[in-house]
Simulated scan of single mutants.
Amino acid sequence: MIEFGDVYRGRRVLLTGHTGFKGSWLALWLSRLGANVTGVALPPETSPNHWDLLGLDIASHHVDIRDKDALARVIADVQPEIVFHLAAQPLVRRSYREPVDTWATNVMGTANLLECCRQTPSVQGVLVVTSDKCYENHEWVWGYRENDRLGGHDPYSASKAATELLVASYRASFFHGSDAPVLASARAGNVIGGGDWSEDRLIPDVVRAVMHGTEVEIRSPAATRPWQHVLESLSGYLLLGQRLLAHQHDVAEAWNFGPAEEGNRPVQAVMERIASLWPAMHWHIANNASVHEARLLYLDSAKSRAGLKWQPVWGFDDALSATVAWYRGYLADGAVISAQQLDRYVQAARDAGLAWCQP
């Protein structure tokens, strides 16, 4: 089958944040699509980590995006046709401990990237990935749309809102001409999947607890999030990138990629489902007070469904089943089944009749 019109085959792609959880999965998919991928990121923070386990044969540069000169040298050498910008400080609780670094990486790092891209004639499109947390959260029971107000309580969320403002400013100031690169942004829900070992994230906390024979401590069991497998958001990014490479300026906007309504579940529901799939996992609710984190957050992805013909493939149960299967296989015998799960996902998308994966 042909995925995304085969537009990535032979393309020079710059991927920032390729050593991270989401970035490593995107590197895998782009490599499968035949793209000539160059990665820019800090070294992986954890051992094990998904990037090293994949063992992909792509050019990898350990560059801090806050270092504009170093970033500029890589981009000038690669001359990318499209840029997927995923590099970030992505953790809410760390942002309380390291607010200045969070702002510097997420906002000024993105500014550095956009400056380099607008001075590189080869660049046809840029996709900046932010977060569903970029919205000013009123704990509404309905989903946030792309034209809702931006904001953020914690430094991470606020920095992502500021990044969206930065992107809009660069689009209006420098990327608006017919010959200019097409600049878009993407906001995804809470992504899960195999290979994530980040600190203070629910699924990695579960895995670490199982590995050490301890119980998982849950801070906010009633907190509701838009849970989705990492491949869901990446299919949206790649679909949007296809339009960027076609130089379609009508997609130079912000786009939500969230799960179907049934994917909006409280943390407790996630834990109960994992426990049914993984009997070795045990958990309890924490008694200690925590830093502020939103209790309720939904995304409205109607715009992506209508404008990009994107839609989720795996539901809540499928996403959790795939995630648990990945970790159980790895912990049992070191198996890394990312490529096999990607094959299953694409086949499911084809069976569902999605346009991006038809023959």
Rank of each mutant, 00 (worst) to 15 (best):
Q79A: 14
C357G: 11
V230D: 06
T214E: 15
G177E: 14
I285C: 05
E164H: 00
S290F: 04
R32M: 05
L42G: 04
V100L: 15
A222F: 05
R73W: 06
L244T: 06
N106H: 01
R93D: 14
R12T: 15
G55H: 04
L183K: 06
T16Y: 02
I2E: 12
V210T: 15
I65G: 01
L245K: 03
F4C: 12
L308H: 05
W140V: 12
C357Y: 08
P155D: 05
S220E: 14
E232N: 04
L166K: 01
V74M: 07
P259S: 12
G241V: 10
I2G: 05
R97C: 09
Y330Q: 06
Q340Y: 08
N112V: 02
A41P: 06
R243D: 13
E139V: 02
L166E: 01
R219H: 08
L308Y: 08
P44G: 10
H176A: 15
S338Q: 12
A35R: 02
W310L: 03
L342Q: 12
Q268R: 14
D317P: 03
H61S: 01
V346E: 04
L296H: 04
W197S: 03
S304H: 03
I58P: 02
D343G: 02
V207I: 13
L71P: 04
N256H: 14
P44S: 11
A59I: 05
D64G: 09
M108V: 11
P44V: 08
A104V: 08
D343W: 00
I337K: 05
S131F: 05
G125K: 07
G307L: 13
A322L: 07
N288Y: 05
T46E: 14
R66F: 00
Y170M: 10
T16I: 06
A222H: 09
G17D: 03
L331F: 03
A289M: 00
L150D: 03
G152C: 11
G17E: 02
A70T: 08
F175W: 10
L30D: 10
N147L: 04
G39P: 00
L240M: 09
A222C: 09
V63F: 06
P80S: 13
V167T: 06
K22T: 09
D317R: 05
A286S: 15
L71S: 04
V210H: 11
L202T: 08
N287H: 06
G143A: 08
N288A: 13
A355I: 14
L320Y: 02
V346I: 11
A88N: 02
P48K: 09
R11T: 15
E115W: 02
L28A: 15
Y330M: 06
L354G: 13
L296C: 09
A72N: 12
V267F: 00
V83T: 10
S159Q: 09
L14M: 13
S173C: 10
S276G: 12
E262D: 15
D6F: 00
G307V: 10
C357N: 08
Y8A: 08
